[in-house]
Design a protein around this nucleic acid. Structure first.
Lengths: 319, 319
DNA sequence: CTGAAAGCGCTAACAC
DNA sequence: GTGTTAGCGCTTTCAG
């Protein structure tokens, strides 16, 4: 087996509790003995067993991170930031993927609950009641979705959508289509709400399409539907769909931004023409969620988004 | 605190050991009592504490997954597949990111060792000796790199590079550039070796550039250097670099595939023109690595790659 | 088939 | 400042 606290104790001629203290409360032990213990520990290659420690302290120093789809380019930067931030605070993180299935999501929270000090629930597909209930069993922080009495990190996509619509209006577009995202997504609702309001405010008309799965394929598939709305500009639920849409339009002989302007959301895509998009602070959200979990505050944090104007939007042609 | 085996025992009027057996060795307990215990357990919402169980069985039912960069699009499909496959076998997985730092890599293996039954080391940057040593402390399986006496899952990128070069040769290209990847990457060495051989075999000339970081930026930055080699076709270390390269060439007024053909590796990019690339079986590799770890076999598995011809390669112009 | 008892590796009172 | 003791939640002999 592996080397334990007892081995270190025996070799350094002290009691196990002294060894234990050397690692978990160094200030309580005589510097001289501490040094000796540390030396022998090092020499034997001793590493505390966190699981054993957790059994008694109740703190595992592990976090759970549950996302709808690891392969969706929105998530990797969030996962990366959260993991790195957590590790900097001596926490390890379990990552799990629900494949957009609310049932899996719930099961996962339960399965991980005992092994972690808290769980980051990213863009969950569960209903609010379920989430509220789960929050009683294990500290939770929800990303991209507000749930009453549960800490959350939100991104101000409404603000982003507003900026996007105003940008398009300023370019002369008054017929705008919104290519909607998945059913049950808070982000999607926010975008729709803000875009509708904004379009009205700028004197334009907004046609809402969807809901649709947030994939490239669905972007491609909706190209015709978008054109049929008579829109000269489109705001897509995310970059994935925007990329698909540009592709689909291209196949129909419609060029971006010459014929139609397209704005994405997420800033995850690198395309030609470079995509105008609403950048969402995913990495910052990951870090913030970890902080909230570790401080056990019940905060709701809303992070700002920002419009990045690139090449996929242009002034309305005269016609 | 949470509900334990003891609560269930008390309520169902049996000893804790019977409850324990109900979950870990059901066949050893009378069907009637088992049913009763199960019912009360369900009712109380009892969930076994895996960490406590691990303390005595020595099996944590956790796996570690260490990658160089979660945000590199090569990894998410691998992580997703490995996690899902592992969970299907009742394993949870810690995911950690080394940021391409060998030191972090080693520290991570040690930090996770006690908490997992095995670790997937993906495209490690450590040297072979270090990996061999670590393999003594914890079951390891290395992805994308052969290490003597350590189980591995490899992808046959050599075969892929060969196919790519032959494809280009068939299109009439005899001046080919290889845009190299990161130093210390086995994959990079394999590609170079196979491409060089293949170019020689087809009577072409291959100019090797690099090493370079495997990023889009570095692809952009190398566009000029590529042109300077006089190549009419390029094989890039991965799709990321290929995408950057196409972008960089475009800025220099060089069009793909009209002026220069480009082949990527990974099949992670969606571009216009659609990228001809060597598809690597990342998801399969993730699943295979998990299987090897759970079966504790010392296999070395080599997975085939495949050339996907799309629009970024074309026949050499007459000139 | 079930209960009793020991103990996994560690921490946390409580003595001394 | 250090040793003693008990015990976290669970499994696993060993009896019966």
């Amino acid at each position: 087996m592996s080397v334990t606290i007892r081995d270190v104790a025996r070799v350094s001629g002290v009691h196990v509790s002294t060894v234990s203290r050397t690692f978990s409360a160094p200030h309580l032990v005589n510097p001289a003995t501490r040094a000796r213990v540390l030396e022998f520990a090092e020499q034997l290659g001793y590493r505390p067993n966190r699981a054993a420690r957790a059994l008694i302290t109740g703190r595992t120093h592990n976090l759970g991170l549950i996302v709808a789809d690891i392969a969706n380019p929105f998530f990797p930067p969030l996962i990366k930031a959260a993991e790195s931030h957590a590790r900097g605070r001596d926490y390890h993180v379990f990552v799990a993927d629900t494949d957009e299935d609310p049932g899996v999501e719930e099961e996962l929270v339960h399965a991980l609950a005992k092994q972690v000090d808290g769980i980051l629930l990213c863009s969950p597909r569960m209903n609010t009641t379920q989430i509220e209930k789960l929050a009683h069993d294990v500290p939770l922080v929800v990303v991209n979705r507000p749930v009453p009495a549960v800490p959350a990190v939100l991104m101000d996509v409404a603000q982003g959508a507003r900026l996007a619509i105003e940008h398009l209006a300023r370019l002369g577009h008054s017929e705008i289509a919104l290519l909607g995202g998945p059913r049950g997504s808070w982000t999607n609702r926010e975008i729709r709400r803000a875009a509708t309001l904004s379009a009205r405010g700028t004197g334009g008309r907004l046609t809402v399409l969807g809901p649709h799965p947030p994939t490239e394929e669905s972007g491609v598939a909706q190209a015709e539907a978008v054109l049929r709305t008579g829109a000269t500009a489109v705001l897509a639920y995310n970059d994935l769909m925007a990329v698909g849409l540009i592709d689909g339009l291209d196949r129909l002989g419609v060029r971006v931004p010459h014929d139609v302007s397209v704005v994405g959301i997420d800033n995850t895509a690198r395309t030609r023409p470079a995509l105008t998009t609403v950048a969402t602070p995913t990495a910052a959200a990951g870090r913030a969620a970890v902080d909230i979990l570790l401080q056990r505050t019940t905060a709701v944090l809303t992070l700002p988004t920002e419009l990045i104007v690139r090449e996929s939007t242009a002034a309305l042609k005269d016609s």
